Simulated scan of single mutants.
Amino acid sequence: MLLINESHPYVFILLGIPGLQDVECWISIPFCCMYFVAFFGNIIILIIIRSEKSLHEPMFLFLSMLSMTDIVLSSSTLPKMLGIFWFNLREIGFEACLTQMFIIHSFTAMESGFFLAMAFDRFVAICNPLRHSVILSSKAILAVGISVVFRAFLFFLPHPLILESSIFCQSNIIPHTYCEFMAVIKLTCGDSSITKSYSLIIASLMGSCDLLLTITSYTLILHTVLSLPTKKAGLKALSTCTSHILVILVFYTTATFTFVTHRFGPNIQPQIHISIANIYLLVPPMLNPIIYGMRTKKIRQRIIRWMGLRCRDR
């Protein structure tokens, strides 16, 4: 039943994962574990970067921005998702739904932007090390961070505005675990093809441009490394990039699968589509602190030192 407040519902009903409602309690276990790692892992990264002055460098400052983005992104979906799985709390208010949708899309765009910023930092550090501190000064880092946030807000603010002014004449049931734009726009009256195209084009162009510039940065880095006089120096330079390359591969691999399921949605089972969409929002925030914690020497040493102190205190 559609509960109407002028032109839009009072609430939406989130179905969760259609066809898998009987096993949602079991599905919630890995999701809960992923959220736990994502939330507390990124909190630890933030604490370490803030407390360790030697980590107050562009790469780690961008990493802290990425960690804050991951915390917000995962927290915007998982608590509600677990409420659906554990307590059957499937209702979500109209304004809350639009807010969740905006956070998901805009913070995903921010994540992509911060990956590009980190790639640019590695490019400058390896290809032009003498000017690294000049090019990426404190003001420049702040400007990049603000630009990434502003870009995400600018391009995805139309989503909730469009839905706020739309008339809903379909069911208020969303076959998803969270308020995803494509799922909500299908409930509106009239032809929504232009709006859907705008969303897909903006998301694909933004992601493609970021990925292309990131690949360009690493191509130039590889060219510089291969021209170094010694193999040891080249390997040492590349070692500073391995963590970043790994998290980029995870992010863009899941993003590509999600985009493909949107593009060819009618031909893909809803369980697969929604599961991939959930993985896209959970796996990168979970793996980012793990990869950076294990692969980044300064962070790894700080974690080991912190854990050692805790053990001695006991």
Results as ranks from 00 to 15, higher is better:
Ile71Leu: 09
Val72Met: 10
Val72Ile: 15
Val72Glu: 04
Val72Ala: 10
Leu73Glu: 05
Ser74Cys: 12
Ser76Cys: 11
Ser76His: 14
Thr77Ala: 08
Pro79Asp: 02
Pro79Met: 03
Pro79Phe: 06
Lys80Ile: 02
Ile84Trp: 02
Ile84Lys: 13
Phe87Lys: 05
Phe87Gln: 09
Leu89Met: 06
Arg90Leu: 01
Arg90Gly: 02
Arg90Thr: 05
Glu91Asn: 13
Gly93Met: 01
Gly93Tyr: 10
Phe94Glu: 05
Phe94Leu: 01
Glu95Phe: 14
Ala96Asn: 12
Cys97Val: 04
Cys97Met: 01
Gln100Leu: 00
Gln100Met: 01
Gln100Gly: 06
Met101Asp: 12
Met101Ile: 08
Phe102Asp: 03
Phe102Asn: 11
Phe102Val: 05
Ile103Lys: 08
Ile103Val: 15
His105Leu: 03
His105Tyr: 04
His105Pro: 10
His105Ala: 14
Ser106Met: 02
Ser106Gln: 06
Ser106Trp: 02
Phe107Leu: 06
Phe107Gln: 08
Ser112Lys: 14
Ser112Met: 13
Gly113Ser: 05
Phe114Gly: 01
Phe115Arg: 10
Phe115Glu: 08
Leu116Arg: 11
Leu116Lys: 08
Leu116Gln: 07
Ala117Ile: 06
Met118Thr: 08
Arg122Thr: 06
Phe123Ser: 05
Ala125Met: 07
Ala125Ser: 11
Ile126Leu: 05
Pro129Leu: 00
Leu130Tyr: 13
Leu130Val: 13
Arg131His: 08
Ser133Cys: 04
Ile135Gly: 03
Ile135Met: 03
Ile135Asp: 02
Ile135Leu: 14
Ile135Gln: 09
Lys139Cys: 02
Lys139Gln: 10
Lys139Pro: 02
Lys139Trp: 09
Ala140Tyr: 15
Ile141Phe: 06
Ala143Ile: 07
Ala143Leu: 04
Gly145Thr: 03
Gly145Val: 12
Ser147Trp: 00
Ser147Val: 03
Val149His: 11
Phe150Gln: 02
Arg151Lys: 05
Arg151Cys: 01
Ala152Ser: 08
Ala152Tyr: 10
